[in-house]
Design a protein around this nucleic acid. Structure first.
Lengths: 322, 322
DNA sequence: AACTACGATAGACTATAGTCTATGATTAGA
DNA sequence: TCTAATCATAGACTATAGTCTATCGTAGTT
């Protein structure tokens, strides 16, 4: 009986129905495909009829599945409306949001804040774009409400909510010998000079961890303190680099850079919205958290599709079908 | 954030909002008041604003609580609609329901079946009204789909869903010396002759258990094999009896009987819809289970208010206010 | 003041919900 | 045929949801 279902099951169902893919839904929900599979099986058992049918490798909603999707949308819409009313009642009319983000996040955070400020026009925002080291310092000093990080610091008791994919890609100059090749073996990179961010940066940590796990020792030719500098060094032929695909989002001309199609890349990382666990969040900070939680489905689609050359054809082709 | 709420919490909230009483809601949900209290506290913490306010001993919905009640009703209505669609899709258009009930249940089960058959006109119903002993035999022999009992047999692996209150009351002749008295001490009954059902009946088990737990030894003057016979014996002055309040529901003239206001009574028992756990229920039986699950709120109000002399003033006065 | 009724809280416990890794089955494409 | 992609299942584990009994606090009534 559907009334014994859980909202979690319904959320999972809705994500699968929208994506028409268990795996995509799992990624979106920051969980694994078997979890999605099990949740859907439980829901299907409750309903007593199949909600999806599989034709070849594709899944389609059954008629009953279509009806349940409508019901889900009604329900979640009703809950969203209620949340708006609650925020209004709480007087989220004015206040200040203090947000510190690491530098790569500057490519998308201002847009997020723009949307947020449209919804809550009375809220002031203080945005600091700084490197990871300084973010960590500010966390310790409790100087902000929330932080955007690519790698939450494990040595601190933080709550970290993933809200956006942060794919790390291999960048090379457009005229690089490997440009345009498909499925470049990872070993091929061992002879390439690398340009990396400074020790301590999240991207560097992730890069070193990945190559270390695959038994590849990379040659670091140069360390630079900013993403822009790294991109210029790559364009200048000084080496290749691993950077967040988000760093390409604002380029008005990407002809000088290319993303290499390397096996194992892009590394699927996330952006996290984080705060110290003991921190008592302000109403405004909670509103921003809720806003991000509500909008994060849209975020995944909006920002990655704007990155030229990023292998996001799955998302794009799916979008055309829907 | 309300989206992390559970449907259970919302159900509890809705029951409290409708009843404007934690205790009444707990009874309706067949659970305890602290459970309700905790669930509501969790929900309130999620919302971040009070959902009820207490003025004196009465609780009232806050404005936000009112809104949440609307949202709940929308959501549960959407789910109910979906269940209808599912039943249709499953083809609950025709079939047979085999139901056996103990004799006291004859006072209300036909009405239930009437409502059920209105909704599913193509379904045939076989209803057997028999004593408890025979019900148990039929369970063992797997002769029916579902059973209505006042006391599920503990020695069998049964699923038993409570769906209606079955209050056990003390009946006496209208001219009994204790008639009209308030808060009659339990000890006063020790000197009264009792007329009981046969050993093995659920009512008798419950009666003996209650008095045994209170250290009262009752004098059994007579055992009779039917509720009607017991009532006639009570009217005739042969003693008092403990019977389900439901036995009074069909009386066109209750002037010869009265319900004594004894401390500890009415005993709050339930009617159960039960089936053997290993039983694979037919689509029709499942539909009846779902029907009862959906309608059980209404049942509690409808049937008990019809019992003349039953102390149900709380329900009646609340109904007038709503 | 004593008693009753009702909601709130503490503490303890059980049930179940949710999740993961590993692996199997199936399909489509090269 | 092989590889890749995707969903299904098994088994194990953790987290949390739900619940109860006992008791306290408050308000209203007698």
């Amino acid at each position: 009986m559907i009334k014994n279902a859980s909202l979690r099951q319904l959320k999972v169902f809705e994500a699968v129905a929208r994506n028409l893919s268990y795996t995509r839904a799992a990624e979106e929900l920051f969980t694994t495909q078997p979890t999605v599979s099990i949740q859907l099986k439980q829901l299907t058992d409750l309903v007593g009829l199949p909600l999806f049918e599989q034709v070849g490798k594709k899944i389609y909603l059954t008629d009953i599945g279509q009806e349940l999707l409508k019901v889900c949308n009604e329900m979640f819409e009703a809950l969203s409306r209620f949340e708006m009313m609650v925020s209004d009642a709480k007087g989220v009319k004015a206040g200040k949001l203090r947000l510190s983000v690491i530098t790569t996040a500057k490519y998308f955070v201002p847009r997020l804040l723009g949307l947020f400020c449209q919804r809550y026009p009375g809220i002031d925002v203080s945005l600091k774009v700084i490197n990871r080291e300084m973010v960590l310092q500010r966390i310790v000093a409790n100087m902000d409400d929330l932080y955007v990080l690519g790698q939450p610091p494990e040595q601190m008791d933080m709550v970290a909510e993933p809200f956006l994919e942060n794919p790390l890609v291999v960048l090379a100059a457009a005229n690089h010998p490997m440009a345009g090749k498909k499925n470049i073996p990872l070993k091929s990179l061992a002879t390439e000079p690398f340009v990396l961010r400074e020790s301590g940066s999240g991207t560097r940590l992730a890069t070193e961890k990945f190559f270390s796990e695959h038994g590849i020792k990379i040659k670091v030719r140069m360390e630079l303190g900013s993403n822009e500098a790294i991109k210029q060094a790559v364009i200048g032929g000084l080496g290749i680099a691993v950077l967040s695909a988000h760093t390409l989002a604002l380029e008005h001309s990407n002809n000088e850079l290319t993303i290499l199609d390397v096996k194992g890349f892009p590394l699927h990382r996330n952006w996290y919205l984080a705060y110290h666990r003991g921190k008592s969040l302000t109403v405004v900070a909670k509103a921003f958290l809720d806003f991000i939680e509500t909008e994060k489905k849209l975020l995944g689609e909006t920002y990655l599709t704007r990155i030229s050359g990023f292998p996001s054809k799955n998302i794009q082709s799916k979008k055309k079908k829907m």
